[in-house]
Amino acid sequence: MSVNQASGEILIESRVSLRQSLKLRELWSYRELIYFLSLRDIKVKYKQAVFGVAWVIVQPLFTVLTYTFLFGKVAKMASDGIPYSVFVFSALVPWTYFTSAMNKGSMSLVGSGALFSKVYFPRLVIPLAAVMSGLLDYMISFFCMVLVLAYYGIYPQWGWIVGVPAVTLWIFILSSGVSFWLGALNVKYRDVGHIIPFIVQIWMFTTPILYSISVIPQKFQMWIKLNPMYGLIETYRSVIFSRPIEWASLSVSLALTLIILVSGSVYFAKTERSFADII
C-alpha cells in the first residue's frame, strides 16, 4: 500500500520529462522512509549476530594487522614517515565504508524486487538507505582508529571536527552516485553483481591506501589522481595527521564525484520506471 504525499492533483502519464522523473521534492518528502529502511538494515544485521558490534571492531583491526605485517614489515612500504599501521588504518576506515556502501547500494535494488511490484515510492530511496546504513559501522571503526592513534601518541585535533564529516559526506555522495549507476544497471544486467567485487579490488589497488603516492613514478601519478577516491582518501589522511591538504587533487575528486552523482541520478531516473516490469 502506498500513499502519494501530494494532496493536490497528480498526473500519471507515460512520457515524462527528466525533471519530472527526478522528482527531488518527492524524494525529500520520503526522507523518513530512508531513515526507517536503514534502521531496518542495521537492526536486522545485529539482531541475529551473537557478537554483534564486536565484528565491526575485530574485522578492521585484523585487516590492519595483516596489512601492517605484510606491507609494513615484510615489504617495507614507504608511509610518509607515519607508523605504517596507522597510515593504513586512516585510509582503510573511509575506504571500507565506501566499498561496503557501494556494494550494498548496488545490490539493494535487486533485493527489493518484492517492494517494487507492490508499493510506489521514489526508487532512489532504496540505494540511499543502503548507503546510509553503513554509517554506523563506519563510526564504530572510526572510534577504533582513534584509540589506535592515541596509542601512537596522535590525539584528536580541532581540524577533525570540520574535516572528517566533510570528507565523509563526499564519500557518501560518491558511493551514492556509484550505487545509482551500478544498482540500476544491475536490475537490467545481473552480470553487474558479479563484476562489483572485481571493481572494488582494482579500485582499491589504484587508490593509495596501502602505499603512499610518492612510491608511484611521476608519470603515472596523474592517472592515479584521476580516481575520484584519491583526493578524498588523501584529504582524509591529511586531516587525521594534520598535514596540508592537496587542494588540487581534492577539487578533481569533488568534480568527478559530482559528475558521477548527476549522471547516476539521470540514468537511474531514466531506467527507474521500468524496474517493476523487469525486476
Binding site: V3, N4, G8, E9, I10, L11, I12, E13, S14
Partner: peptide, 9 residues
C-alpha cells in the same frame, strides 16, 4: 493519462 485528485492509497 490518469488524473488523480487527492491522496491515493
Amino acid at each position: 493519462s490518469i488524473r488523480v485528485k487527492g491522496r491515493l492509497a
